[in-house]
Simulated assay, not measured.
Amino acid sequence: MADEMIAVSGITKTFFTGSEPSRVLDDVSFTIQKGEIVTLLGKSGCGKSTLLHMVGGFTKADQGQVLLDSQQVQRPTKRCVMLFQQRNLLPWRSVLKNVELGLEGEKLSADDKKERVLDALKLVGLEQHLHKFPHELSGGMQQRVAIARAFAMQPDVILMDEPFAALDTFSRYRLQDELVRIQSQKKTTILLVTHDIDEAVYVSDRVLIMSSHPGKIYKEMKIAQTKPRDRSHGDFHYFRKKILDEFELSGVPNTSEYSI
């Protein structure tokens, strides 16, 4: 399809602990359209991070393939950027220089590079903190720097591996708001990994619910709610409950692990 950005087809992956095989992913297939935010939702150990790394070209599948804009993913590229829970900021570099790091090696003039970096920092509200160092920033601000660095690279896809999990609830909410706002402007395709149901419902266009042992896409759910969303609205709680019910049906216990 012309608007298909990511196509995952028949992905299978087995790891070995000693001589014992462990099937992590089994025949996983899904597609993501350009400009969508799609979430892989599941408990720890269901293979969602492994799957994310395969989309990014960091891990090879035993079987199946991943296409990025109709091209098979063989290795990591700057068209598809990974954003981790760890900010991976260099402590000796300022906010400005940490964001510039993502543009090293690009064929850009110094003025173009600076303009792109400043635009990204304005997007996340850090234009007044250009010359601060990571240790001078809160955890939420550090993650904003990492988000700015990703968007400054102007990738087609951003892969996010539980990027807000280490933050307090209010910082997490603010950054979820920022992510939705920025993505609505830039129309970047985002694939997010989380085990937080509230986060999945709040930011996603679609949620892919994964079951475990081995990991599979158990259910696809479209979140038919306009953005930005109201966490107190009845529709929000409807989708939240619907996902919790699906976890019970998939054989994944419905416990507080899946809610805030």
Rank of each mutant, 00 (worst) to 15 (best):
Q65R: 15
V66E: 05
S70A: 11
S70C: 08
S70W: 06
Q71V: 14
P76R: 04
T77M: 10
C80R: 06
V81L: 04
F84I: 03
Q85L: 03
Q85H: 01
L89M: 08
R93A: 09
L96G: 01
L96K: 11
N98D: 02
L101K: 04
L101Y: 14
E104S: 12
G105P: 06
G105F: 02
L108D: 03
A110C: 05
A110N: 10
D111L: 11
E115C: 00
R116I: 06
R116S: 13
A120M: 04
L121Q: 04
L123K: 13
L123Y: 12
L123R: 14
G125D: 13
L126Y: 11
Q128C: 02
L130V: 02
H131I: 00
H131Y: 14
H131Q: 12
E136G: 03
S138A: 06
G139C: 08
V145H: 14
V145M: 14
A146W: 05
A146R: 08
I147K: 11
A148T: 06
R149N: 11
F151C: 13
P155L: 00
P155M: 01
L159I: 07
M160Y: 05
P163V: 00
A165Y: 06
A165K: 07
D168P: 09
T169K: 04
T169Y: 05
Y173H: 14
L175A: 07
Q176L: 07
D177G: 13
E178A: 13
E178V: 13
L179G: 03
I182M: 02
I182K: 03
K186W: 05
L192S: 01
